[in-house]
Amino acid sequence: MANYKELEDLVTQVRRDILRQVHKVNSGHPGGSLGCAEFFVALYNEVMDRNENFTMDGVGEDLFFLSNGHISPVFYSVLARAGYFPVEELATFRHINSRLQGHPTTHEGLPGIRVASGSLGQGISVAIGAAQAKKLNKDKHLIYVLCGDGELQEGQNWEAMMYAAGNNVDNLILTVDLNGQQIDGATKNVLPLGNLKAKFEAFGWEVLDIEKGNDLKAVVSGLEKAKDKTGNSKPICILMHTEMGNGVDFMMHTHDWHGKAPNDQQLENALSQNPITLGDY
C-alpha cells in the first residue's frame, strides 16, 4: 500500500525541481511538466517494477518511454529522485556540456533514458517495438509510454495505433496527457482532436479515463486498473485529464507557460506555493 504522504511530498519537491531547472536556464517547458508530476511520481515510485541498476535493454523490468520530450524537467527530476543519477545534476539542465539536454537523449549517456524524444509523434512506435521485443524475449514485464494530446496531431501516432491493435500488442500502456493545451493555444482552437476515446476504441484499443490526473490516488489507481487489463489482446490507452501548470496558480488555466520560464519574482511566488519537502538540489 502506497504511503501517500511520502508520495505527495515527492510531488511537491518535483514541482520545485521543475521550476528551479527552467528558471536557472531561463528556458524549458514548465507547464506540461507540472501537469504530469503526479503521473511520473506514481509511475516510478508505485506502479512500475524497476531494476535498481539501469541497463539499456531493461530485461526483466517494466520500461517507460516519454514521447513528448519537451516535458524533460519532470522526467529528469523523477529519475534523479529515483536514484538514476545525482539530484545535483538537475542544476545543469540545458547548460553546455550537460547530460540533461533540452530534450531527453541517450546520446549523453544519462541513465534512465532509452531513446531520444523531442520531435513529436515517435514515442508510441518505439514503445511498440520495445513491447514486441519483450514478447520475443518471453519477458512478461510491461511497456509504458506517455504522449501529449496536441502531439496526437502527428500522423505517425495513428500508424502506431493501427499496428498495436492489429497485432495484439497487449503489454503496452499508453497514457495521453489530456491537458487541452498546445503552444499556439487550446487544442480545440489549434486543431480539434475530436472524441479521442471513440477514436482509440475504433482503432481497437482498450480505453480508460483518469478524470483527476493531478490526484495522486486517482493516478495510481488508474494505472493499476490499466495494468489489470494488460494481456487481453488489446493495447491499453489511458486518457489522463490534467491541468497544465498544476500546483502553481498563475501557471494554470492557460497555455502561456507551455514553454516559458518564470522570472525571479515569479519563481519566488511559485516556490512559496510549494514549500520544500525532501530538500532542494
Partner: peptide, 12 residues
C-alpha cells in the same frame, strides 16, 4: 514512420 520507430524500440 511506425516501422522505423518500432525498429528502434526493438533494439531495446
Amino acid at each position: 514512420a511506425n516501422m522505423i520507430g518500432m525498429a528502434a524500440g526493438m533494439t531495446i
